[in-house]
Design a binder for these strands. Sequence first.
DNA 1: GCTCCTTAGTGACTATTAGACACTAAAAGA
DNA 2: TCTTTTAGTGTCTAATAGTCACTAAGGAGC
Lengths: 238, 238
Amino acid sequence: MTQQAKSPRRAGHGIKTPLLTVDSVLFSYHDKSLKILLVRRSSDPEKGKWGLPGGIVDIDIDDDIEATALRKLVEKTSVEPPYLDQLETIGNRGRDPRGWSVTVCYTALIAHQACAQHVSTVSDVRWVELDAALKMKLAFDHREIIGIARERQRQRALYSISSGYALAEEFTLAELQHLHELLIGKPIQKRSFRRRIEQAGLLIDTGKKRQEGGRPAALYRMKPESITHRFVRNLEAS
Amino acid sequence: MTQQAKSPRRAGHGIKTPLLTVDSVLFSYHDKSLKILLVRRSSDPEKGKWGLPGGIVDIDIDDDIEATALRKLVEKTSVEPPYLDQLETIGNRGRDPRGWSVTVCYTALIAHQACAQHVSTVSDVRWVELDAALKMKLAFDHREIIGIARERQRQRALYSISSGYALAEEFTLAELQHLHELLIGKPIQKRSFRRRIEQAGLLIDTGKKRQEGGRPAALYRMKPESITHRFVRNLEAS
DNA sequence: GCTCCTTAGTGACTATTAGACACTAAAAGA
DNA sequence: TCTTTTAGTGTCTAATAGTCACTAAGGAGC
């Protein structure tokens, strides 16, 4: 009796299709650290373990795969993230004890306070520091998926500021730079970082200031085009 | 009677899973033009129409999704491509008349002559110029998928030479440059193109020369690391 | 108010890498 | 030998990131 024979999914015309799920790596920057959202699994398999927010594609409810990702994220956070990007699809025989299964993975970004209240009221959803999550024993292959998402965000940080959607709606340039430094893993030249952003006109100056300990810092908001903008030259690679 | 109720796929534990397929956009450079491989569909739905090489994931045969992509490409070309990269996964209710379906798409590159003989012996497999393919009426959403693959290759051409795997095993710098010009859609400065490749040491000089009409050109081969290498600065965007 | 500390923001020079383009090199054919 | 063709290079310019010291604007201690 082989393992994968436990629960074959069989179509009317005789095609066995694997289980199809969606998992999202939802990043958020808070308290000067980068966190991701983890969920405690309430049912088998891997019941009780922490894993990524996601679940099975419901072809009666969801119009497309992205709809599944959003539905699951809204279930856990109560809000839709402003950034959602398909990461990679992983499918093989061994990743799920139920047999051949496929997960379509997404990277999502959100402001921490947009969902802080909802998350703090439940015990099965938690923000975990990225590096800590990568050391945890998680359900299925979710740790690998987080690693892939992190690496992709690291690469992107060299030529894009789209990761700014992980900050609060209004943020300082110092915060945006620190987030990039966390992703890249080394310090960035303040001058280079600010110059290219200003020249490309990627942020909206709210006119407001925020102060903590020194000169007040200007508060900015993301322009929508900052999601797609690519600088022609990378910051120094690590 | 609704359309998507025709053939529900239902798991042992009552989960309806969508049809799961893989499609590959296989590029190859030949006769100074960029072509992709199309296949005439031999069965319904869309029987008789041309579409991308691919098919249904067979969980009895395939160990993972990439194995399906390779298996289908070998069926049509008789060889495995040296470059295979996951592109995007598309899944929704409307793309296949059989109902909710998902396709995991790949970009593949191969030398034309590696499979020319096999392809030329069958009538249901054909190389089609990329621009022509984008004007054809193809099965399902395959034209859109080709458009996505093309755009991704265009972007990559600005900071990578991995597309060189669409050339013959040994090629001249002029050929590699022309391929990049086809992808980017505008001429490239010869000096810039060659300088960065030489400095990064991405090619192997075979020592051989090939001549056609003027001074003989040196023949090169791809180094494996040229797949992953990213130049820190893009060529001029179009 | 004055000095010092802290964080924000800028001026100005250097370094790296692509763009431009004319020049040389090596072959064939008249 | 001259012309034509394609391959390959020398060299200057332009764009953009790196470096780092400097100024700016606030608070705290005195």
